[in-house]
Design a protein around this nucleic acid. Structure first.
Length: 489
RNA sequence: CGGGGUGUGGCUCAGUCCGGUUAGAGCACCUGCUUUGGGAGCAGGGGGUCGAGAGUUCGAAUCCCUCCACCCCGACCA
């Protein structure tokens, strides 16, 4: 296969699609808007899932599974949430097919098999979950209820892109119930911190924690917290959200508990989620024109060993010995003994697939007691003594993880620009991109107007924003703090 | 949902305007030999109801009609 990746500078969007295809992450499918996640892409998701699940468990959550289908009457119970998703719901209306008399061998929907009540394919599960929680929660002793589910959801999108926006996607959704408002808000913030920790320490992707403006808030939430990341093309991407839902769902579904004073009270709720979209973020934060670049903590193969020539004694024995040594330290190693491919091809192939460390061992090395180690992040390669190799490689994996984070953070920090006028705002947005830190008067009208004029939206009001008196870049009205604008995915 | 475009081996496309033997190329794939430290070379080989249906014609990938799918640009979105 001659694999050519479009350079980022030429066409960023084509570059992204080339990475997805050539790194074997996903394929288009026969289903409009839906992708097939291939084994290599799915292995990355599994690593993300495992790291997140560990963190969810560590913060007291348990997993459960709720149905894919939501009866329409339940779905519409919390009005704001239902309205927010109404335009992109897949709906099941029938439960049977039959032979089509007019077209032999073909099937048709049986008009006799119409459902009495349509079923919405979940775009999110608040409705079915809160309807269930009503029965599970009676007393303050049942609280807090801390449940997560790993699931697929469907949002009928017009324009789709692999991982970033597909009609069906995989995610996790946490849904918790609490006795007090304070406790629910604390949970919302805790899970935001979990996401930020995961993004920065596992994905090596720096994020900004913040709160969404009213326009960008999750439908049905009182407050939406988010982590925002910056992609290499200067566009922002929401990498995770954590919602304080107030008592909206409790009231819609009558979820009450008896407090210590024997009085009925509505519970307080949160929900939080991240999706396979994170794989899209991972690609766009670290990868280069040679292909995917993966942080070691998520790479399905952390080290690939290429014997030169293939599978020949004593080269192969040395490869096996090193692999065993690395595996005993928990390193994920792959030895490529495929004799039908040349080593040069393999080098290019593993670069394309983002394997953090490549080791080459040849006859020459056996004679010299050496091996060649190449790192994917900087593409440097160097020869080392065989004797020290396991320790060197393990240290290198840590270094690569750290370097990817530092590199991404440097880029991100260099692309947060403070502006004080709308002219400056527009110029920075067009010439430099990235986050624009500016004063905003707090009104939805101004936010909407800025979006119309520039296509930039408020990504978040950073949690660590300092109090600073100023005037709104558009309206000139007084403002107490800066917010972050950007064009977004 | 509006505007534009494209459907030909697994992939990228030529051929369509102006109908004419067995429908082509590159890549990929299979076999053999030589190779193997940055995407190998040579030789041989397999694979297509030309998006679908109906029509015009002696003859259709090519012309007419209908339908379908996908892509790009907008509006909407994690």
């Amino acid at each position: 296969m001659s694999k050519v990746i479009t350079p980022r500078a030429e066409d960023y969007s084509a570059w992204y699609l080339d990475i997805v295809k050539n790194a074997n992450l996903a394929d288009n499918s026969a289903v409009r808007g839906c992708m097939v996640i291939k084994p290599y892409g799915y292995a990355i998701w599994e690593n993300m899932r495992d790291a997140l699940d560990l963190r969810f468990k560590a913060t007291g959550h348990v997993n459960a599974y709720f149905p894919l289908f939501v009866p329409k009457s339940l779905f519409e119970a919390e009005e704001k949430n239902a309205e927010g998703f109404a335009k992109e719901c897949a709906v099941v209306t029938h439960y049977r097919l039959k032979n089509d008399a007019s077209r032999p061998g073909k099937l048709m929907v049986d008009p006799e098999a119409k459902l009495e009540e349509e079923l919405v394919v979940r775009p999110t599960s608040e409705a079915i979950i809160w309807n269930t929680y009503r029965d599970w929660i009676q007393s303050y002793r049942d609280l807090p209820l801390l449940i997560n589910q790993w699931a697929n959801v469907v949002r009928w999108e017009m324009r789709t892109r692999p991982f970033l926006r597909t009609a069906e996607f995989l995610w996790q959704e946490g849904h918790t119930a609490h006795a007090t408002k304070e406790e629910a808000i604390a949970e919302t913030v805790t899970m935001l911190d979990v996401y930020a920790d995961f993004a920065e320490n596992v994905m090596a992707m720096p994020v900004i924690k913040g709160v969404k403006s009213a326009n960008e808030r999750f439908a049905g939430a009182e407050d939406t917290y988010c982590i925002e990341a910056l992609m290499q093309d200067g566009k922002a991407l929401q990498a995770g959200t954590s919602h304080f839902l107030g008592q909206n769902f409790a009231k819609a579904f009558e979820v009450k508990y008896l407090n210590k004073d024997n009085q009925q009270e509505y519970v307080w709720a949160t929900s939080w989620g991240v999706s396979t979209r994170l794989i899209g973020a991972l690609i766009m934060v670290h990868s280069d024109d040679a292909g995917l670049v993966l942080p070691p903590k998520l790479a399905p193969m952390q080290v690939v060993i290429v014997p030169i020539p293939n599978a020949v004694s004593p080269v192969i024995e040395e490869c096996d010995r090193l692999a065993a040594e690395l595996r005993s330290h928990g390193v994920r190693v792959h030895i490529d003994t495929d004799e039908t491919k040349r080593s040069g091809f393999k080098f290019a192939e593993y670069e394309m697939r983002g394997v953090p460390v490549r080791v080459a061992i040849g006859k020459r090395d056996i004679e010299n007691g050496t091996l060649e180690i190449a790192r994917r992040d900087t593409k440097e390669k160097q020869t080392y003594p065989m004797a020290d190799s396991s320790g060197i490689i393990r240290a290198l994996l840590d270094e690569i993880q750290q370097n990817l984070y530092n590199r991404a953070k440097e880029y991100r920090d260099a692309h947060i620009t403070h502006v004080n006028s709308f002219d400056e705002f527009k110029e920075v947005l067009e010439t430099k991109g990235g986050f624009i830190s500016a004063h905003w008067d707090g009104t939805g009208e101004t936010e909407e107007r800025i979006k119309e004029l520039t296509k930039a939206t408020i990504r978040c009001i950073p949690l660590d924003a300092a109090n600073e008196d100023g005037v709104c870049v558009l309206s000139g009205a007084p403002s107490k703090q800066r917010v972050l604008f950007a064009k977004a995915y």
